[in-house]
Every structure is written in C-alpha cells, then in structure tokens.
C-alpha cells in the first residue's frame, strides 16, 4: 500500500495543483487571480514533466567523468529541456496578460470580470 502510494502520490498531488490552477482561471472573477491560477496551472504541468523525468538513483544530468556516461546514472534530461521552454512560454504569456490587465484597468477602472462585462455592454 505504502509502495503504491509512494509510486503514485506525486501524480495525485500534481493533479490537485492542476485542478486548483484551473479553478483559479475559470472560477475567479478578478483578472489578476485568473493569472495567478494560470501560473499554478502551468507549473503543475511542468512538475508533471519533471516528475516523469526522475530516475531512481539518477543524478543531475551534467556528465561527471567519475560517474561515467551510463544513461542510468543520470536523470532523463529531455523533459528538462522541454520544461525550460515551457517556463519561458509561461513567462511570456504572463507578461502579455499583465500588459493586457494594465490596459483594461486604464479603460474600465476595475479588474472584476463581471464589472468589465457590464461596462463593455454599455
């Protein structure tokens, strides 16, 4: 039982994070909160990738001449690369979204989704 839990719990918690993030994006009315949710959502996905890359007994994927070059010695580096990209994409999205928020606040003087909708329909 404990074995199974150890084998699985990371996924479960990542799923919980994912759901929290999604809730932030869909359920929160404040635009900044939506963005915070977005960050959590993306980070959960990143965590999932990095978690999948782990290897029991693997070390940091920088080749150490003493350790040798056997693949089993190092954790899987490919997801790390993907997630580097993912993080940068996430930052880019956050930056652009924040820029939008600034403009929206200037125009409508509120960040509440419903209030903005009301303003827009006028």
């Amino acid at each position: 039982m404990v074995e199974l839990f150890i084998a699985r719990y990371v996924y479960l918690m990542i799923v919980v994070l994912l759901i929290i993030g999604l809730y932030g994006m869909l359920g929160k009315r404040n635009l900044l909160k939506k963005l915070i949710g977005m960050n959590i959502f993306q980070t959960a996905i990143f965590l999932f990738f990095i978690e999948g890359a782990t290897k029991a007994g693997g070390s940091v994927p920088v080749i150490d001449q003493q350790l040798g070059m056997a693949a089993a010695q190092y954790v899987n580096p490919l997801p790390h690369v993907l997630i580097l990209t993912g993080i940068v994409v996430g930052l880019a999205l956050t930056g652009v979204a924040l820029a939008f928020i600034l403009v929206i606040y200037r125009a409508y003087n509120t960040l509440d989704d419903k209030a903005i909708m009301k303003e827009m329909s006028k």
Partner: peptide, 15 residues
C-alpha cells in the same frame, strides 16, 4: 530536488 537544476535555476529567476 528532482535533479533538474537547470530548470530550477530558470524557475527561480524567471518564475
């Protein structure tokens, strides 16, 4: 902790 130091570095600076 999971062995992804590069990613950790980027997450710390960027994220």
């Amino acid at each position: 902790q999971m062995g992804a130091i590069d990613v950790a570095f980027v997450e710390a600076t960027l994220g």
